[in-house]
Simulated scan of single mutants.
Amino acid sequence: MEFNVVKETTYRVKSVWKTLQGEGLFAGRPAVFVRMVGCNLWSGYADTRERDAARTGANCPMWCDTDFTKEGSRAYTAAELAQEMRSVGGDVRFCVITGGEPLLHLKAELVEALHQAGFFIAIETNGTVSLQEACWNEEENRLEAPDWIVCSPKLPQEQLTLEYFDELKLVLPDYHPAKYSDFAQRQRLNEVQNNQLPLLWLQPEDGDRLHQATQMAINYALDNPEWRVSVQTHKILNVE
């Protein structure tokens, strides 16, 4: 007699670590970070930067410094990853799922497992993968979405499929607010002291163009006060 064995979904993870969230509304908050392997805009290897930029039309392969390659990664089931995050994080129950592009991997079962483990789930995405595609629960016919979504788009707004987000972060000088005015309308507005709070961030690129990008961000925010300048506090504090 033959039995059909259902293989449990695994998630390829580069690293899990406890640190402080460095950017956005939750800057300074202790967090468990989970870096997923892989991105749909860049391979992660230096010798493919120009090729991937030409292939995708994104500028980020030319300056991205994040290591999300498969070397040194590990596969976890949803339950194993939740346990690892609790072990690494101790009492911390705020987590940030990042990449690469985390929505290439994040599924409803992992969201459910992390919620059951007590985590508030934030993700950082480039906006090219829809929540419906990534996190739909087929059995219960509903969306099992993360609690907080930060989008940092790297393609033109007409190519973005993310249905909504909580924070929008544009990396200057390559990604300018004028080119994302329609996409910015997908933001879920959150209330603080009975006022709707637009969390629209201008992030100066941390590289050779830092001075130029910083001045551009400051000038734009002063003229358009619904936008804020994002400061990478984790680099100031020298934490990973």
Rank of each mutant, 00 (worst) to 15 (best):
Arg142Met: 08
Leu143Phe: 08
Trp148Asp: 10
Ala27Arg: 12
Val229Tyr: 09
Arg186Lys: 15
Gly57His: 12
Glu138Arg: 15
Arg35Val: 03
Ala79Asp: 13
Gln157Ala: 03
Gly38Phe: 10
Ile149Lys: 10
Glu23Phe: 07
Glu124Phe: 12
Phe165Gly: 11
Gln212Arg: 14
Asn238Ala: 12
Pro156Thr: 04
Pro61Ala: 06
Met216Thr: 04
Phe68Pro: 04
Ile97Asp: 04
Leu25Val: 15
Glu80Lys: 04
Val34Phe: 02
Tyr220Cys: 05
Leu106Gln: 06
Asp147Thr: 09
Pro173Val: 03
Glu101Cys: 12
Trp201Gly: 03
Ile123Asn: 00
Thr19Arg: 11
Cys151Gly: 07
Asp182Trp: 10
Leu106Asn: 02
Ala27Thr: 11
Asn126Met: 05
Ala75Cys: 12
Val5Ser: 11
Pro61Asp: 10
Ser181Cys: 07
Gln232Met: 01
Leu41Arg: 11
Phe33Met: 03
Ala53Trp: 11
Ser230Lys: 04
Ala31Ile: 05
Met62Asn: 10
Leu25Pro: 04
Lys107Asp: 01
Gly207Ser: 13
Lys179Cys: 10
Glu140Gln: 15
Val96Gly: 04
Phe94Cys: 07
Glu205Trp: 02
Leu202Pro: 06
Pro61Phe: 07
Ala82Glu: 03
Phe94Leu: 14
Lys107Arg: 13
Ala58His: 01
Gly118Leu: 08
Cys60Ser: 13
Pro198Asp: 08
Asp208Glu: 15
Pro102Lys: 04
Ala82Ser: 04
Arg35Trp: 07
Lys179Glu: 14
Val13Tyr: 02
Asn126Asp: 15
Leu162Cys: 12
Pro225Met: 00
Asn4Glu: 12
Met85Thr: 08
Val92Ala: 09
Arg51Glu: 15
Glu163Thr: 05
Asp47Trp: 08
Glu138Ser: 12
Gly90Glu: 03
Ser181Tyr: 09
Lys179Met: 14
Phe3Val: 14
Phe165Arg: 08
Leu189Asn: 00
Arg209Thr: 01
Asp147Val: 09
Asn195Thr: 15
Leu189Met: 13
Lys169Phe: 09
Glu2Gln: 14
Phe165Leu: 11
Asn141Arg: 15
Ile121Asn: 03
Met62Leu: 15
Met85Arg: 06
Val37Gln: 06
Cys60Ile: 12
Gly72Gln: 01
Arg29Pro: 01
Gln116Glu: 14
Arg29Val: 14
Phe94Tyr: 12
Glu158Gln: 12
Glu2Thr: 15
Gly22Tyr: 09
Glu124Gln: 15
Arg228Gly: 07
Glu109Thr: 00
Tyr45Asp: 13
Arg29Met: 15
Leu155Gly: 00
Leu103Lys: 03
Ile149Asn: 03
Met1Ile: 06
Lys179Tyr: 11
Asn238Arg: 14
Ser230Val: 02
